Simulated scan of single mutants.
Amino acid sequence: MQIGANSLLQEMKSLSGEIPTGSITPQITQQVRSTSGSDFGELLSQAVTSVGELQANSGELSSRLDMGDTRVTLSDTVIAREKASVAFEATVQVRNKLVEAYKEIMSMPV
């Protein structure tokens, strides 16, 4: 299945109106909005850093819950783990698409 860049961009724009504003943290939303002048490598680096922070936060909450910290609830820990998991899976999918695109470009005749 081939997906063109223009059709994908149009679909993303149409879907962006369906996302509730409270579901994305303001910091991440601000990062995405302010990347118009950034290069792709910098944007990718920020995304990987963000995933790392989510995983670190998840690990910290899990450790605190295991140690018996009463300020940390099980639901907060599970939600943090799921956020980290989803972010990691999305990063892996982006990486896979980049590798696929690179292989396709490298196999093109010159």
Results as ranks from 00 to 15, higher is better:
residue 60 E to F: 05
residue 48 V to F: 11
residue 40 F to Y: 13
residue 46 Q to P: 07
residue 29 T to E: 04
residue 44 L to F: 09
residue 45 S to Q: 14
residue 60 E to G: 02
residue 31 Q to D: 11
residue 36 S to H: 12
residue 13 K to M: 13
residue 36 S to L: 14
residue 15 L to P: 03
residue 56 A to C: 01
residue 69 D to C: 01
residue 22 G to W: 03
residue 62 S to K: 06
residue 39 D to E: 15
residue 15 L to N: 07
residue 10 Q to K: 06
residue 39 D to H: 14
residue 67 M to F: 00
residue 51 V to A: 05
residue 54 L to A: 15
residue 12 M to V: 15
residue 37 G to L: 12
residue 33 R to V: 12
residue 49 T to N: 09
residue 61 L to R: 00
residue 16 S to N: 10
residue 58 S to F: 02
residue 41 G to I: 06
residue 31 Q to L: 13
residue 43 L to M: 15
residue 30 Q to E: 13
residue 38 S to G: 00
residue 18 E to D: 07
residue 51 V to P: 01
residue 42 E to H: 07
residue 63 S to G: 13
residue 54 L to M: 15
residue 27 Q to M: 04
residue 28 I to V: 11
residue 50 S to D: 09
residue 37 G to R: 14
residue 16 S to P: 04
residue 21 T to G: 02
residue 32 V to N: 01
residue 57 N to C: 01
residue 41 G to D: 11
residue 39 D to T: 13
residue 34 S to E: 14
residue 24 I to R: 04
residue 56 A to S: 11
residue 18 E to T: 08
residue 23 S to G: 01
residue 49 T to D: 08
residue 65 L to D: 00
residue 40 F to R: 13
residue 24 I to V: 14
residue 15 L to C: 02
residue 68 G to P: 04
residue 58 S to H: 05
residue 42 E to Q: 12
residue 10 Q to V: 03
residue 32 V to M: 13
residue 47 A to C: 06
residue 68 G to E: 00
residue 18 E to N: 09
residue 33 R to H: 12
residue 63 S to A: 14
residue 63 S to Y: 08
residue 55 Q to A: 11
residue 39 D to L: 13
residue 15 L to I: 05
residue 25 T to G: 08
residue 28 I to C: 02
residue 36 S to W: 05
residue 49 T to I: 06
residue 47 A to V: 10
residue 30 Q to W: 01
residue 14 S to P: 03
residue 51 V to F: 01
residue 49 T to P: 04
residue 30 Q to M: 05
residue 26 P to M: 06
residue 15 L to S: 05
residue 49 T to M: 09
residue 29 T to R: 06
residue 44 L to K: 08
residue 34 S to K: 10
residue 53 E to I: 11
residue 35 T to F: 08
residue 41 G to W: 01
residue 25 T to L: 01
residue 36 S to V: 15
residue 62 S to E: 05
residue 56 A to T: 08
residue 49 T to A: 13
residue 20 P to N: 04
residue 42 E to L: 06
residue 48 V to A: 15
residue 49 T to W: 00
residue 57 N to Q: 12
residue 28 I to D: 00
